Amino acid sequence: MMEDDEEKRGIAIQIALEAGVLEQCEFHEDCLFEGGEEIEAAYKLGNFKISNGEYGDVFESRREMTDLIKEVVQDNSAEECYSCAKNRDD
């Protein structure tokens, strides 16, 4: 069950990254932060992928997917990489 949750969360993050809603720091791979796109872009991309047969067996519903996208975006809502900001401020 925990592995399923991690897989779903990873896919939600990937969708948000592909849609430009989140960005990944080029120096710190584990750091995600706000991208330039609105969250609706990730919802649309996720729904498009499910309609094309991707992730259909991963999520129980489209709603589960969009709720998880919303969660990962909120969890990574910083304006910049925290590690880069900390190094700059030191």
Rank of each mutant, 00 (worst) to 15 (best):
C84T: 08
A16E: 00
H28I: 03
K86N: 10
E37Q: 14
A85F: 08
R9W: 01
E6P: 00
D57I: 06
E40W: 02
K49C: 02
R88E: 15
E60C: 06
G20I: 06
V21W: 00
T66M: 02
K70N: 14
K44Y: 07
I39V: 15
C81V: 10
V58C: 09
F59V: 00
L32R: 12
D75T: 02
E37A: 14
E54R: 11
V58D: 08
E54I: 08
K8T: 03
E79Q: 05
D90W: 01
K49M: 13
A41I: 00
S61C: 12
M2C: 02
N87A: 15
A12D: 08
N52H: 00
D30A: 08
N52T: 06
E26D: 14
Y82C: 04
I69E: 14
F27E: 15
A41M: 10
S61I: 09
K86D: 07
N52C: 04
G36S: 15
D89G: 10
D90I: 01
E37M: 13
F27R: 15
A16D: 04
D90K: 05
I11Q: 08
A12H: 10
D75I: 05
C81K: 11
F48A: 05
E7A: 09
N87L: 14
N47F: 04
E71N: 13
E29A: 09
Q14V: 02
L22F: 00
R88K: 14
G56F: 05
G46I: 04
V21P: 03
L22H: 06
V72A: 02
Y82G: 09
D57N: 13
R63L: 03
Y43F: 15
A78T: 13
F27L: 15
F33N: 08
S51Q: 02
K44D: 15
E54S: 13
L22N: 03
E40K: 03
Q24R: 15
E3P: 00
Y82P: 10
E26V: 04
R88W: 12
E71L: 13
E7K: 14
D67R: 12
N47P: 00
N76A: 05
G56H: 08
L45M: 01
A42Q: 11
G20D: 11
V72Y: 11
E71G: 09
R63D: 10
I15E: 01
E29I: 01
K8I: 06
E34Y: 04
E60D: 15
G56W: 05
D89Q: 13
G35R: 10
I39H: 12
E26P: 10
L68T: 09
E23C: 13
N87W: 10
V72F: 09
E80W: 06
E26T: 07
Q24F: 08
Q24H: 05
E64V: 06
L68D: 10
V58K: 11
G46P: 14
K86S: 05
K44N: 12
L17I: 07
S61K: 12
E26W: 00
D30P: 00
R63Y: 08
Q24S: 13
E38I: 05
D90F: 01
E60L: 12
E40L: 11
C31I: 01
C84K: 05
